[in-house]
């Protein structure tokens, strides 16, 4: 039995990224990334505690969902402001067939960018927030099996957990690109540059965007710039 290369590299990519987040103090808790064999030729890159992840699909209130994920430790990493990241990859042999990369911000806490210093200094009462927080979860899904040209792109970005929202994405995301996307957009401030400290890119996935999808507004993963 040989462990498929790409799956292993995906796991290693993720492990290196978590290390960096921990070192910089932006990750409060995490689960070790694991590479698991599901059947003869299916492999999964996941985290301990992933058994409970199915509830994330259910039809429950976001507040409850976030709490449940937190209580069950169903995340790859918990960030400084209570934001949760889940990274799951599924491989058949050496080929990626599915991924689910989700960001669940806290419904109770201000976002990091809102008050970075209070978070970095770990002030005691940051959780005392009266303003209504509008949490905005987002997800990058990749699924070979259910893909349909234009209607259900292989890889797509879903905003705010809205069912019909599937913004086409040019290719599956490596852990490195997903983490950078989240950090750059939700955690970067003038004083705190967490992206700079991340390990380099080590993984590339081929483009899956169809001709039709490329004619729609879409998101591009710029693998060619970092190859």
């Amino acid at each position: 039995m040989t462990v498929p290369q790409t799956a292993q590299r995906t796991r290693d990519d993720l492990t290196g990224l978590l290390s960096s987040l921990i070192e910089r103090g932006v990750a409060d808790d995490q689960n070790f990334p694991v590479l698991r064999r599901l059947s003869e030729d299916t492999w999964e890159v996941t985290f301990d505690g992933a058994d409970h992840v199915s509830i994330a699909m259910g039809d429950i209130d976001y507040q409850d969902l976030h709490r449940e994920l937190g209580d069950k430790r169903s995340y790859s990493v918990k960030l400084i402001d209570g934001g949760l990241l889940q990274l799951l990859y599924l491989f058949k042999g050496d080929a990626l067939v599915k991924h689910r990369l989700a960001f669940y911000p806290s419904p109770n806490l201000r976002s990091f960018q809102d008050d970075p210093d209070a978070y970095m200094r770990d002030e005691l009462f940051i959780e005392i927030v009266s303003r209504r927080i509008i949490p905005f979860p987002l997800r990058f899904d990749y699924d070979v099996e259910v893909a349909r040209d234009m209607v259900h792109p292989h890889c797509h970005l879903t905003l705010g957990d809205v069912k019909g929202c599937r913004i086409p994405v040019s290719a599956p995301l490596s852990p490195r690109w997903f983490i950078e996307f989240i950090l750059r957009n939700f955690y970067q401030t003038e004083e705190h540059d967490f992206v700079l400290a991340l390990p380099g890119h080590s993984l590339t996935f081929a483009t899956t965007l169809t001709k039709g999808e490329s004619a729609l507004m879409h998101v591009v993963v710029p693998y060619e710039t970092c190859a």
Partner: peptide
């Protein structure tokens, strides 16, 4: 308290890399 995050980071990282689970008691 002010520098805890930063100074504890490298130690937590080293433990993580040795497979020792750890967490930072934070706001959440």
């Amino acid at each position: 308290p002010i520098s805890a995050r930063e100074r504890l980071g490298p130690i937590r990282k080293a433990l993580f890399e040795r497979g020792i689970q750890n967490h930072l008691a934070g706001v959440d």
